[in-house]
Design a protein around this nucleic acid. Structure first.
Lengths: 143, 143
DNA sequence: TTCATTGCAAAGTTTTTGCATCTTT
DNA sequence: AAAGATGCAAAAACTTTGCAATGAA
């Protein structure tokens, strides 16, 4: 009888995992899988980094709540450190840049004014519009 | 010379399209493609409804802004009528059901308390937690 | 009768998984 | 040496697209 497969994941420290975790930790905005892959790839010396490992590691970090996923409604899941202060995001409709917005703008602190029985654990708020750079119409043609 | 393919979509009224549009219009929460397919299927009499038609029709309705997509990051895009009053969503962590939450809980009515220069046009808020049904622990084993 | 619409199947994407190999411990 | 981790390729899940057949107008 073959012993059941009882792999314990997340037990070992590897270059790939370190690179992926560091990339997310050091980013100044949430990153997509592809972005994480591209950046982490440059950090592993003398070996490769497959996209499958990125997916596996990101899912591991999610489970451990080292990172959170960020949904911006464009169909691309992004990931950011879980250790950041509570904040929300702003995505510019024009240049697509995502900005972190410090603080929380939820009035009833995520719970009140809800139909009875709903227990809120987390929330995600994203604002969409035009960022300072894209709002300001150029006054002159060349400048 | 063969004439260019110049198909004009959305020109004809069919049972399939009517069924799909009605299902979304009458729902009390955003629906996934599969949910739309299941429900619309029951409404077409004497013919079939392929999943491809659901995708095509949903994309047509999206283009015309008859419906909007709702992305909650669980890998399932959902769709809802564009005509609804402003509202937000709650997704139950346990049963995955998505509920509509009427009204808005944003304190600074979506604009104030932002760094200067950011012009907010829309926003999206999603609450995650446990719904009434899943919060209430069963008092007895059989009931 | 014309040509948009449909279903099916094939092709594209994105994410997950099986497995042999490699590497950490 | 043992068992977790990786890369690759295959599989799974989700969408889109080509095409012949169907059906709305």
């Amino acid at each position: 009888m073959s012993p059941a497969r009882r792999e314990q994941i997340g037990q070992r420290k590897t270059q790939q995992r370190d690179a992926i975790a560091a990339v997310i930790r050091q980013s100044d905005g949430p990153l997509t899988i592809v972005e994480i892959h591209l950046r982490a790839r440059r950090r592993v010396a003398g070996r490769q980094l497959g996209i499958a490992t990125v997916y596996r590691t990101v899912n591991l970090l999610l489970q451990r709540e080292v990172i959170h996923s960020v949904i911006l409604g464009d169909g691309q899941t992004r990931y950011e450190s879980a250790g950041l202060d509570h904040h929300h995001h702003f995505r510019c409709r024009v240049c697509r840049t995502v900005y972190d917005l410090p603080g929380c703008m939820l009035d009833p602190p995520a719970g009140a004014r809800l139909p009875a029985g709903f227990r809120v654990e987390t929330h995600e708020l994203t604002l969409y519009g035009t960022c300072p750079r894209c709002s300001r119409p150029p006054r002159r043609a060349n400048r």
